[in-house]
Amino acid sequence: MTASRSRADVLFDGFTYTVLSLLMLMVLYPLYFVIISSISDPDMVNLGKVTFYPQDPSLEGYRRIFGDSTIWLGYRNSLIYTVLGTSLNVVLTLTAGYALSRQDLSGRNLVMMMIVFTMFFSGGLIPTYLLIKGMGMVNTIWAMILPNAVSAYHIIITRTFFQGNVPLELLEAAKMDGCSNTRFFLQIVLPISLPIVAVMVLFSAVGHWNSYFQALIYLKDDELQPLQIILRKILISNEASEQMMDGLVNQAELVKMAETMKYGVIIVSSLPVLILYPFLQKYFVKGVMIGSLKG
């Protein structure tokens, strides 16, 4: 039988739920405001009359956004960079993390110290650019993939996970049955490590999808630009394509449509993450918990 709750417990729960509800409102309202602003009259938005529901709703902004070829080109490029980059990240991170978790690896602590060192010190932007240029990767898709192929933080997370979830006795038993290290990793370690695999896939995919600084530095051709750079041009530089503004000759109409599409492109670029995150949130939480464990 559960004990009766005291008045202090009820008050504490009420206070907790109230604070959490306010925090949730603070997080969700900006997103909701962007959504309703993207379908509202820009004049109403600028006058501050759009607060809780759209004013003079219209989907014209979204029609022009989805009818623009540069948006779809950016989607394609971002998808390519995300898939290729995430695949390389996961393969290198899992193999490195597992190798460094093995107690029979000579010098693993020294290697780990060198990896952690890179989290605090780096060569800087100019030496990095010269290195990328010297390797012939400037203005190629590899400039978006190879420089960040491995994350020191991700290696630490995977190493901690393998140390706590792959017992040495399991390896010894597999070796007695004639299992090689490669077979043990592929057929035994990976199937029992699906949570950390999912965490690495999600962390890497979100990072690649939101990446724009590397494209800003290394990519010159418009054909290679990811979606985030196209979004940046529209939001900051007001460089909407002619195809988006087709049929608008009046300057006032151009300004109004540009304001509407600013909100719309935010939603369009964030849509994949917004759809996936509620279903995959538990893996993000698991990743944070794994990284907080002592290992």
Rank of each mutant, 00 (worst) to 15 (best):
N46D: 15
L47Q: 15
G48K: 03
G48Q: 02
T51K: 15
F52S: 10
P54W: 02
D56M: 13
E60F: 11
E60V: 09
Y62E: 06
R63Y: 13
R64P: 01
G67P: 04
D68E: 15
S69L: 05
T70Y: 06
I71K: 00
L73S: 13
G74N: 05
G74S: 04
R76V: 07
R76C: 11
N77R: 03
N77K: 03
N77G: 04
L79S: 05
I80M: 05
Y81I: 02
Y81F: 08
T82H: 02
V83I: 09
L84E: 05
G85R: 00
L88E: 08
V91Y: 07
V91Q: 09
T93L: 02
L94I: 01
L94V: 01
A99P: 02
L100Y: 01
Q103N: 14
Q103E: 13
L105M: 09
L105Y: 11
G107T: 06
R108L: 07
N109H: 15
M112W: 10
M113I: 12
F121S: 15
S122H: 09
P127E: 06
P127C: 07
P127K: 06
P127N: 07
L130C: 08
L130N: 10
L131K: 11
I132N: 08
I132S: 04
G134F: 02
M135P: 08
M137D: 00
N139G: 06
N139P: 01
L146H: 11
L146T: 14
